[in-house]
């Protein structure tokens, strides 16, 4: 699995499409509705799924662990939301925490970790 992280609007999806020759049909874009389909080769906006998890008390890391055989050869894309002040709202705090734990787990499992900064790649692993 290749993990791509970076701040909002940095060009992560565009990078992934070029790097892995992904078609639009191969990309599952998460929304805050709790749906996630691990059968897609690329999961995008994972931070939207973790926001749903944080709001609904779902263990996102547990969900990912139980589907590992489905994503372990895929491309996972998540926003880096870890550099601001501690959010005042309880849900946003839980969101940051959950997303951070998930990214740490995925980063450990990943064959490669790439951060995208202003459209440029930075190899982290």
């Amino acid at each position: 699995m290749d993990l791509i992280i970076g701040g909002a609007y940095q060009g992560k999806l565009e990078y992934a499409k070029n790097k892995y020759a992904l078609s639009d049909g191969g990309i599952f874009t998460c929304a805050e509705d709790g749906n996630i389909d691990f059968s897609f080769p690329c999961l995008y906006k994972i931070q939207e799924y973790t926001l749903y998890c944080a709001k609904n008390g779902i263990d996102a890391v547990g969900v990912f662990k139980s589907h590992k055989n489905e994503w372990e050869n895929g491309v996972l894309i998540c926003d880096d939301i870890f550099c601001g002040v501690v959010p005042l709202g309880k849900e946003l705090r839980a969101w940051r925490e959950t997303t951070g734990r998930l990214c740490a787990y995925l980063s450990h499992e990943a064959a490669s970790v790439t951060r995208i900064f202003c459209g440029l790649e930075q190899k982290l692993k």
């Binding site: 970076g6 940095q10 939301i81 870890f82 601001g84 959010p87 940051r96 900064f117 202003c118």
Partner: peptide
Amino acid sequence: YSDAFRYDEFTESYRSSLARLDRFLA
């Protein structure tokens, strides 16, 4: 671009526009 917050529509559009300029310059 790396904080855990949900901004209003105007702020989001400002952030995405600034990121566009940054990516162009990069």
